[in-house]
């Protein structure tokens, strides 16, 4: 019983780590500002999910305010930077 759950949670940890690393890779590689913006948005949402998953794993509800604040503010930065990015008018055609 506990063994099943343990295996399940190890898998969950591996999956989360893989997703976060992939997003990090995209942040590092780019190529454009907007790609990094999208990837950091995904990374932040991943963080919200991990905070939730930790609550399930350890059986408490103390991190709910953190989830709320993250969810409410995550998008603001994305929107702000996106507006700035479309205003600067850099025309960088992405190569294949």
């Amino acid at each position: 019983m506990t063994v099943t759950l343990g295996v399940l949670y190890i898998t969950i940890g591996v999956l989360f780590t893989g997703g976060a690393l992939a997003a990090l890779y995209r942040i590092v590689v780019g190529p454009s500002l907007l790609d990094r913006l999208i990837a950091s948005d995904v990374l932040l949402t991943t963080l919200i999910l991990v905070v939730g998953a930790e609550m399930v794993y350890n059986g408490h509800e103390r991190s709910i305010p953190m989830m709320l604040v993250l969810a409410a503010t995550a998008v603001l930065s994305t929107i702000a930077v996106a507006r700035y990015a479309s205003g600067q008018g850099t025309r960088t055609k992405e190569g294949s």
Partner: peptide, 27 residues
């Protein structure tokens, strides 16, 4: 077990989103 499975679904979709970020061709 049900809640662990739901977390598993969330983790899988996170991984898929990450892989999509890496593999999809443009922004």
């Amino acid at each position: 077990i049900i809640s662990a499975l739901l977390v598993l679904v969330g983790a899988f979709l996170t991984l898929a989103a990450g892989v999509g970020l890496v593999r999809f061709p443009d922004a």
